[in-house]
Amino acid sequence: MRTRVKICGLTRPQDVVAAANAGADAVGFVFYEPSPRSVSIETAAELIRSLPAFVTATGLFVNPERGYVEEVLSKVPLDLLQFHGDETPEFCQSFPARWIKAVRVRNRGDIEQAFRDYFRASGILVDAWVADTYGGTGQSFNWDLIPSVRPLPLILAGGLASDNVAAAVQQVRPWGVDVSGGVESGKGIKHTAKMTDFISEVHRVDETD
């Protein structure tokens, strides 16, 4: 199975193009103001104009108001929603769009519970647990906590970069991997060579298996 790659936290059109050219399957735009990678509705709409066909545009939200999600959906042509906070299953599935749910992992039960609670999701994203921080921490977690039985596609995030993603894919066998800080030269500023190296490492593992 080919491991999918998502590059998250894009803020510049040249980075959108570079990510797609490097082979990214999906890109992510952060609609969460406290994040240094946050973009406005207007900026996100402009960035997506740079996105070629067959690359999934993902909108990341953290505990948003319903009206804000609805406004984004009405103005930005997103393909997928990513809920990265404490949103309920009912909230996540109440919008006319596919969605994935992120879970910050402290123990195996966190992941198993997410599979049960968010069973209508298109996937479960597992990330490091850091108090009062919702993703983008650059920290990894113990991959041994990830169960082998997965009712939904599992997306691995948290502290990934080109120097460890091959080991991550070999050990976890995720449906996809999600990276942000590990391919940056600064917050929200993607580094083309780092994105290319990251995706090449993922593909290298896929091709040797």
Rank of each mutant, 00 (worst) to 15 (best):
R2V: 05
R2W: 02
R2C: 01
V5Y: 04
K6Y: 03
I7L: 12
I7K: 07
C8H: 05
G9S: 06
L10M: 11
Q14H: 11
Q14P: 01
D15V: 03
V17H: 07
V17G: 00
A18D: 12
A19R: 01
N21P: 02
A22T: 10
G23M: 14
D25R: 01
V27K: 04
G28Y: 06
F29M: 11
F29K: 03
Y32I: 02
Y32Q: 03
S35H: 12
S35F: 11
R37G: 00
R37Y: 05
S38A: 15
S38L: 10
S38N: 15
V39S: 06
S40E: 11
T43W: 05
A44E: 11
A45F: 05
E46I: 05
L51M: 08
P52K: 08
A53D: 14
F54H: 15
V55R: 08
G59P: 01
F61V: 00
F61E: 03
F61Y: 08
V62T: 05
V62I: 13
N63K: 12
E65Y: 04
G67M: 12
V69I: 15
V69P: 10
E70Q: 14
E71T: 14
K75H: 15
V76M: 13
P77H: 10
L80H: 10
L80F: 07
F83A: 04
E87A: 02
P89I: 02
F91V: 04
C92G: 08
C92R: 10
S94R: 13
F95V: 02
F95D: 02
P96W: 06
A97T: 04
R98S: 11
R98N: 11
V103P: 01
R104K: 15
V105P: 00
R106F: 03
R106V: 06
N107D: 15
R108H: 14
R108N: 13
D110Y: 05
I111S: 07
E112Q: 13
E112C: 07
Q113F: 07
F115A: 03
F115L: 03
R120F: 09
A121T: 04
G123V: 02
L125P: 00
L125Y: 02
V126F: 04
V126G: 01
D127I: 01
D127C: 08
D127R: 01
A128L: 08
W129V: 06
A131R: 15
T133P: 00
T133G: 00
G136V: 11
G136Y: 13
S140N: 09
D144Y: 04
P147G: 09
P147N: 10
S148A: 13
R150F: 05
P151S: 13
L152Y: 09
L152V: 10
P153D: 10
L154Q: 00
L156G: 01
L156F: 04
A157Y: 04
G159I: 10
L160I: 11
L160P: 00
L160H: 06
A161Y: 07
V165R: 06
V165H: 03
A166Q: 15
A168P: 00
A168E: 03
Q170I: 14
Q170P: 01
V172H: 03
R173N: 13
W175F: 15
G176F: 01
D178A: 04
V183Q: 02
V183E: 06
K187M: 11
I189C: 14
H191D: 15
H191I: 03
T192S: 12
T192H: 12
A193L: 14
F198V: 11
F198H: 11
E201G: 07
E201W: 05
E201A: 09
V205A: 07
D206K: 10
E207M: 10
D209Q: 14
